[in-house]
């Protein structure tokens, strides 16, 4: 029983990692067609990446959007998570349910509904409209991460600080903030990653300056550009894994600091 499950688990992981594992294979393959057999090893596609101004503009655009979305989503996440874990108030379930709703809502619904409102108000699309949408879908993830950070916090810690002469504000700064800081960093990184990868909302709301995924989407139609896309994808995957590992490190350190048992996982 255990052995067959273990074999299954390994096969399943192979299934999960199959697409990602193929990325570098084709990124370094000296051939313009994305298919087997492989030809030879090359850095050509990575070199070409440096020569596409439109790509650079898209990367810059995406980074700006991702940073702004991450900061805003984390701020909203802190407020909501603090309210949810520390205070009881009527209607809490409904309010939190609404805020967490984008977690299950198809992104296309979020995208078109925002589009309709923005166009009706006569607002022009741009990076800021993408940020609005990304904050909306990243906030639930931030809340989920920060909830566990705040939950691990004994409420008497803040009371103890107040009892020892600190004000409400300074005890938040001296006690609560340092203890939830790993959660905040982890939330920033996750929200950043979500925004950086998000396609549908950006596709609908981006206006004239494409984000990186929107730019990529455009490139997928041209077979001769695919090897470059593979190279770009490789870089993106490496960056994502790096960010996630850092986020996981901070999440675990936060859990260790507040003396929680490590249950694992972001969700």
């Amino acid at each position: 029983m255990k052995r067959s499950l273990h074999v299954y688990a390994v096969l399943y992981l192979a299934f999960l990692y199959a697409p990602i594992a193929l990325l570098p294979v084709f990124a370094f393959n000296d051939g313009t067609v994305i298919a087997f057999p492989l030809r030879g090893f090359t850095f050509e596609w990575f070199r070409q990446l440096t020569e596409i101004p439109a790509l650079h503009a898209a990367v810059l655009n995406s980074l700006t959007i991702a940073v702004a979305s991450a900061v805003l989503a984390t701020c909203l996440g802190i407020l909501a998570a603090r309210a949810a874990t520390r205070f009881e108030f009527p209607g809490k379930k409904g309010i939190m349910g609404l805020i967490m709703l984008p977690l299950v809502l198809p992104e296309i619904i979020v995208a078109v509904s925002l589009l309709v409102v923005l166009l009706q108000l006569g607002l022009s699309l741009g990076a800021w409209t993408v940020i609005l949408g990304h904050v909306l879908i990243a906030t639930p993830f931030s809340i989920a991460i920060l909830n566990s950070a705040f939950q691990g916090l004994d409420t008497s810690l803040e009371e103890a600080a107040i009892d020892l002469g600190e004000t409400k504000l300074s005890s938040f700064r001296l006690i609560t903030l340092p203890l939830v800081m790993p959660g905040i960093i982890s939330s920033l990184l996750i929200a950043f990653t979500i925004s950086l990868d998000e396609f549908i909302i950006a596709f609908f709301l981006t206006g004239t300056d494409p984000t990186l995924p929107v730019y990529l989407w455009g490139q997928l139609r041209f077979p001769q550009k695919l090897p470059v896309v593979m190279a770009l994808g490789t870089i993106l995957v490496v960056a994502s894994v790096l960010l996630l590992t850092i986020a996981e490190y901070f999440r675990r350190r936060g859990a260790a600091r507040t003396g929680q048992k490590d249950a694992g996982g972001f969700l």
Partner: peptide
Amino acid sequence: VPANVRPTNMVFQSYAIFPH
């Protein structure tokens, strides 16, 4: 008179030792 200026100090049930 708020808690932080009262001439009392408390030992909490959970001890509330600042873990960091």
